[in-house]
Design a binder for these strands. Structure first.
Lengths: 143, 143
DNA sequence: CGAATCCCTAGTAAAATAGTAGGGATTCGC
DNA sequence: GCGAATCCCTACTATTTTACTAGGGATTCG
């Protein structure tokens, strides 16, 4: 019941892109450095997020990655599902197995509970909360 | 974000023990057969649940496993944590990394949401729901 | 005793995870 | 058009985890 490192990296990367509202592309190298992610690994992750339609990119000298849509229209659930696959807590009823069991219903509850958090938390939310804490919290600069 | 097969087996085994309220031990072989679990694998799982204090056992001719306490005092969360380990959705803040991030707070929300289901669902609940559905013949009315 | 059962230690094939390596394709300023 | 900067693509790999299997040892009880 945990998120892969790859999934975490993906979230951090999208957060990094959301943080700077500007539409200019951000280079892989920059994201990797700021979020402490191995660059080559990050390349694969970003490619996957692009093909999911969450990011866009531009090559060349002023190239980089950028959000394909506003941060308030991308949720944590979107990204996690794109990277780690759909998380059904347990395999759905075995095809051959008629064993009626009380678990599928419970897994549904789990899935709904989870969804209430991850599918309702957008990156705009994350940035906002982070800014809030920034202001009245540790005066630890950065950007 | 999924439960291991081992975890599922553990849940099914404890459910099987909860189902027959009787205090007589149930043999591994019986549980394995009724829940379609590889017997030798199940042995390891049950041993783990016993050492967690959830089950008791008796050897010999009328031996078997039994719940170490009433089914309404064992939750799904208990069993999953014992088998799959504590599920923190993502690693807690990296010790060396001061990078203040908006994610720990979100992971807390996830954990709480999850807990609301799995730590409040006892095996007594599961058995009861399962009996209910049994009675009225799976009318399958969903949402 | 001896049959039935749980108990314990090891081993292992396959898959998933977390990367690395090396170069190819675009873009853009000049 | 050249070349530097950047993204893009395919393949490889070491490590860990998963889902078991094997083989016997220790208890219990009639």
């Amino acid at each position: 019941m945990d998120v892969s490192v790859k999934g975490e990296y993906a979230l951090r990367a999208v957060f990094e892109l959301s943080r700077q509202g500007r539409p200019e592309p951000v280079k892989i190298a920059k994201i990797a450095e700021r979020q402490k992610i191995p660059q080559k690994f990050l390349e694969m992750i970003l490619a996957q997020l692009k093909q999911g339609g969450y990011l866009g990119s531009r090559r060349g000298v002023d190239g980089g990655y950028f959000l394909a849509r506003p941060a308030d229209q991308i949720t944590v659930g979107d990204i996690l599902r794109q990277i780690d696959g759909p998380f059904q807590p347990a395999k759905r009823p075995f095809a051959d197995e008629p064993m009626d069991s009380p678990f599928p219903e419970m897994w549904d509850r789990v899935e709904r509970a989870l969804s209430c958090v991850i599918d309702r938390t957008t990156f705009a939310d994350l940035v906002e909360r982070w800014r809030q804490r920034r202001v009245k919290g540790v005066p630890n600069w950065q950007i």
